[in-house]
């Protein structure tokens, strides 16, 4: 199956300087070792930062003790060696862009939290009245990357009346259990509102 080139989307942060940094462009054989080392280094940095956050306030070197720093480095390099191949496939570099993190936080505290509160009141209503009209519907939001599909599937699961059952890897079709079916063949907007647009901005 053909996936779109990683840095060719029209979003502003895929152009300009970030387009130069984005290592997905380094496809040729000569660049393969550079790419491999860069992937390993980025994975190590991510894991080590999480370890440092978890063990803050343990000693005197900065905030950390010497044992935690050495042990954390050893563990991080082992984890990075084991997992760096998996992490950066299919456009994972795009998720390192800080602008996307900002958009993700805006998405999280804005439309997502609102929809989640609504979802809980909806469940409360159905628990009390017992009024359901369930079914499994199919729609295609047109997402290409793994990260985007995962984000949308999880968002759908946590928002009113819907639960993702399956995602077709080839076509990107979503199969969703809908607790109150209004249309047998819905458009993406009927099931999950503005989420596909947000997910495209955050993850694609």
């Amino acid at each position: 199956m053909v996936r779109p080139g990683p840095c060719q989307s029209n979003l502003p942060w895929n152009r300009g300087l970030w387009g130069l940094i984005c290592l997905d462009e380094l496809k040729s054989v000569y660049w393969a070792p550079v790419r491999r080392v860069a992937e390993l280094a980025a994975t190590f940095a991510l894991v080590f930062v999480v370890y440092l956050i978890l063990t803050a306030f343990s000693g005197e070197i900065g905030l950390w003790s010497r044992e935690e720093l050495i042990g954390g480095a050893v563990v991080s390099i082992l984890v990075a060696l084991a997992s760096f191949r998996l992490l950066w496939e299919r456009g994972g570099w795009r998720l390192l862009n800080p602008l996307r993190w900002v958009m993700f936080l805006v998405y999280l505290v804005g439309p997502f939290l609102l929809a989640m509160a609504k979802a809980n009141l909806d469940v409360a209503y159905r628990v009390i009245t017992g009024r359901i009209n369930p079914g499994i519907v199919r729609f295609n939001p047109g997402l290409k990357t793994d990260a985007g599909r995962t984000l949308l599937a999880n968002s759908i699961t946590l928002t009113p009346g819907t639960l993702t059952l399956d995602v077709d890897d080839e076509t990107g079709d979503f199969y969703v259990h809908w607790i109150n079916v209004r249309q047998v063949d819905p458009k993406p907007e009927d099931v999950c509102g503005v989420f596909p647009h947000w997910v495209k901005v955050v993850a694609e």
Partner: peptide, 18 residues
């Protein structure tokens, strides 16, 4: 309160996460 696995998952996942 809910009758089958899928609807139970609806309630359990959303409410306990929130």
């Amino acid at each position: 309160r809910f009758p089958d696995v899928y609807t139970r998952l609806h309630g359990a996942t959303k409410c306990t996460t929130f």
